[in-house]
């Protein structure tokens, strides 16, 4: 079972004040911490679980600059066999279609039974790249998958639908599957583990190696402007010390008739 997993490094934005950049096309990132996109963490884990069960290899791929190698090293430490980074100094000049084309060019030359991506990236929240790759590569696909079983050269997958319903289908391999969070419990990675994984192969390719011209990658969707959420009335704030807050809290509950 040879599996390719596409991963992305994204900023941690919870409990952080985001600042819009001067061009109003993105956010300032110099003060932010970065992590492996949560969905991709589950995707790497799922690939390694299948590899441990059926043998084969796991290759992690990302598109980005040297800083983005961090998520490849993490993937290698989790158990991926090798990694590939496509050198692009500034990925913000591409849209999801462009990124899907770059990744597809890498994947088409790799032996693979399965390609995994996360359902979504935590930064742009687009959720497009995976299924576009499937179409670029003319590969079978399944979206938002929460369980995978391999049987007789096919994958039996559960896709998450709305309202607590799952849809089970059988797809022929090779296939591209977008992985939903919660599909497994991603393993812990230690700093020592990351250091040890430094011996594994991390190959760097550029767009010329892949034979893609800039013209092919010109974006079809353009971010005109980004901005902070428009002001709303918002919540009425309860303030003061915890004691005062608790009293006000109980008063609201009493008024709403949920305190006996």
């Amino acid at each position: 079972m040879d599996i390719v997993v596409c991963v992305k490094r994204v900023p941690l934005t919870e409990e952080v004040d985001l600042v819009i950049d001067e061009q109003k096309k993105g956010i300032k990132k110099d003060q932010l911490a970065f992590i492996l996109n949560d969905w991709d963490n589950y995707a790497i884990e799922e690939a390694i679980i299948l590899k441990e069960k059926y043998g084969g290899t796991v290759v992690a791929i990302t598109v980005g600059n040297e800083d983005d190698e961090e998520v490849l090293r993490r993937s290698l430490a989790m158990g991926a066999d090798r990694a590939i980074r496509v050198e692009v100094s500034d990925i913000s000049r591409f849209d999801s279609l462009g990124i899907s084309k770059i990744l597809s060019c890498v994947v088409k030359d790799l032996p693979c039974d399965l390609v995994f991506t996360g359902v979504l990236a935590d930064d742009d929240n687009c959720g497009i790249v995976g299924i576009m790759m499937a179409e670029n590569l003319n590969m079978n696909h399944a979206n938002m998958v929460t369980a995978i079983e391999i049987e007789d050269g096919k994958a039996r997958v559960t896709s998450e639908l709305e309202g607590g319903l799952g849809e089970i289908s059988l797809i022929d391999l090779p296939a591209l599957i977008t992985i939903q969070t919660g599909i497994n419990e991603p393993r812990y990675v230690s700093i020592l583990g990351i250091r040890k994984a430094a011996k594994k192969e991390l190959k760097i390719m550029n767009l010329a190696d892949l034979g893609i011209s800039d013209e092919e990658l010109s974006p079809k969707t353009i971010i005109e402007e980004v901005y902070l959420p428009p002001e709303t009335e918002g919540a009425q704030m309860l303030t003061g010390d915890p004691d005062k807050i608790a009293s006000d809290f109980i008063e609201i509950l009493t008024k709403k008739g949920v305190m006996e």
């Binding site: 935590d122 930064d123 980004v226």
Partner: peptide, 13 residues
């Protein structure tokens, strides 16, 4: 974007 912390306007080339 960013789980609702940022809004964006997108056009279509």
């Amino acid at each position: 974007m960013f789980n609702g912390k940022i809004f964006s306007n997108v056009s279509f080339a």
